[in-house]
């Protein structure tokens, strides 16, 4: 039997008086493609950062591939990859230098890291640009490099925090093809956050979040059926009383 990739029980986070995440109960199965859909300020990034051990929970617990995010934070970080909402690459270093740096941070010996970097750079269409400073790359290429960085240590769970925000539709599509191929190749669990319904559509299951609270959870088909509507957009509207495009938190 495969352990749950992510289990959250009553997980919550306050920033001063702001309740960014109320009380989250969530199970994500290993190998699942899971989407967290919600408007800006819903609490998606907070959720990801809690699961990735970057924030300490105010209440509740969470386990990622069986490791507690508070007590066993190193084991959690070893098992996950995280592509942040904004790029984390060093803009002054080249793509290759950034990946080498990441390889060392993840304790990959050179003989293991070098061929892996080579493979990722090739697969992600960065081969010709690998010796250029990241600063000179287009937004889409930078995102691809971020993704390569997140996959370098072959994580079991990959968190993608609004990976395509700010990219043009064509670049978004090619990035999605890339992510699709990664999933097929490795049985990777993907935890995606997004505020685009069309990106949540292909997910195995979708959690809809608003104001730090889950308002719906299920496969896209289930959600539409139980709500009696034909699109996830309408699911959101029916469950929250406002449209997804409007900012959730004030």
């Amino acid at each position: 039997m495969t352990a749950a990739a992510i289990e959250a029980r009553g997980l919550g986070k306050d920033f001063g008086t702001i309740r960014a995440l109320e009380q989250l109960d969530l199970d994500v199965r290993a190998g699942e493609f899971f989407g967290l859909l919600g408007p800006n300020g819903a609490g998606k990034t907070t959720t990801v950062h809690l699961l990735a051990t970057l924030l300490a929970p105010t209440r509740g617990t969470a386990r990622v591939v069986g490791h507690d995010v508070v007590r066993d934070d190193l084991a959690v970080r070893r098992a996950i990859g995280l592509v942040f909402q904004e790029t984390t690459l060093d803009r002054d270093l080249t793509v290759q230098e950034n990946l080498r740096f990441a390889g060392r941070l993840w304790n990959l010996p050179g003989p293991l890291a070098v061929p892996r970097i080579e493979g990722l750079v090739r697969q992600f269409g960065l081969l010709e640009r690998r010796d250029d400073p990241v600063r000179t790359l287009s937004g889409g290429m930078r995102r691809a490099a971020d993704l390569a960085r997140g996959m370098l240590h072959e994580p079991r769970v990959l968190f993608l925090d609004e990976p395509t925000a700010g990219l043009d539709p064509r670049t978004r599509r090619s990035l999605w093809e890339l992510i699709g191929r990664l999933r097929q190749a490795s049985g990777l669990t993907v935890f995606l956050t997004t505020h685009y319904v069309e990106e949540a559509e292909p997910c195995d299951r979708v959690a809809v979040m608003d104001h730090g609270r889950l308002v719906a959870l299920g496969t896209p088909a289930e959600l539409k059926r139980t709500t009696g509507v034909t699109s996830l957009e309408e699911v959101f509207l029916a469950r929250t009383g406002h449209a997804l495009g409007e900012t959730g938190a004030g």
Partner: peptide, 14 residues
């Protein structure tokens, strides 16, 4: 400011 610190913080190191 540039976000690089987050790449370091999400690595499995103390």
């Amino acid at each position: 400011d540039a976000g690089v610190l987050r790449m370091v913080l999400v690595a499995p190191i103390r």
